[in-house]
Amino acid sequence: MKKISFTLNGELRYIYVAPNEGLLEVLRDKMGVKSPKCGCDSGDCGACTVILNGKTVRSCLIFAIEVDGQDILTLEGISKDGLTPLQTALNERNAYQCGYCAPGMILSVTELIKKNPHPSEHEIKESIAGNLCRCTGYKPVIDAVLEVTKKH
């Protein structure tokens, strides 16, 4: 076990991890952060997406020990001060159904609109192409993102 520290949703946290422990299981099982989900454990589905130093990564493919000294943001961190305009637009359009893919997908869009506040439809699609969703057909999500990025 090695003691590491990193910033999780704006708070400096310390934790003991084994060298082979994945970031996803450490976040969920040791730190109580439940919004990143496991949907394949092999980097295909994107449900475990978190933002590492401003860029989305799949937390199931990263060892926890690798994030020592880094900065991690999950949907809990995004929602801390109330819903963002993006989350509000998604909610008002009933964009999600079961909601399991939502945390990962919302982080992917968050990364996009930070870099590119007025993305094209194709850019939106590309940004979430690594987040699998079986319920929505993606279109309500794309429409909500288009609406909110035109407005803001």
Partner: peptide, 14 residues
């Protein structure tokens, strides 16, 4: 709007 909408877009849904 879905009664479970906020839970799902905020990451609160368990």
């Amino acid at each position: 709007i879905r009664v479970d909408g906020k839970e799902k877009v905020s990451g609160a849904a368990l």
